[in-house]
Amino acid sequence: MIENNVTNEVKSLPRIGSVAPEFEAATSQGTLRLSDYKGSWLVLFSHPADFTPVCTSEFIGFQEIYPQLREMNTELLGLSVDSVSSHVAWIRNVQEKFGVTLEFPIIADLNKEVAQKYGMIMPEESSTETSRAVFVIDDKQIVRAIIYYPLSTGRNMQEILRLVKALQATDEHNIATPANWQEGDKVLVPPATTDELANERMNDDSIECIDWYYCTKKL
């Protein structure tokens, strides 16, 4: 689209179900590409800036869930519009002041290339900082879930953990998960797509049905 001699490229942002856009970026742990994560799940998340209080609390929270995520073949990758030096200084500061070692890499997206590919900047909120975006990308590099929080509100780490668990359970067992589902709770059997299947389902002793469209089971 060309308006007033200014070229505005209209980019399609990643959506649930789409292939996550490839990137190569400098990080606090060297140069990384999205494709380096093929075969493992990835929680790619942005934060507004290093050395800020909400972000610091979030990074400590992300580090707390990192061992559980790794047990689920899931990696963490942070991002902000800061330099590698800033990230390294902040990581060292968090270690010194809070006693927490941040073990996952953080992208130094100074030119906003990755942030723009993923729609992490909300210009109405801030044109210089990334908002609190979370992209859950599966082992085949498909975007499976997207969460956006504003600058002022720290994210809920337990919800991110729950989301990854739910998505992986869906893939493994071909089920869906109800509201507030937690690991160990009953899951939902996908609704019957034909009248015949609905009848079959109502007579299936291995599942519990309130009605033909609402059946649960234990995993």
Binding site: Q29, G30, T31, L32, R33, D36, K38, G39, E75
Partner: peptide, 12 residues
């Protein structure tokens, strides 16, 4: 080492 780190190091 996590697979992403192995791939990154191998590339370098």
């Amino acid at each position: 080492l996590p697979i992403f780190k192995v791939r990154s190091n191998l590339r370098e």
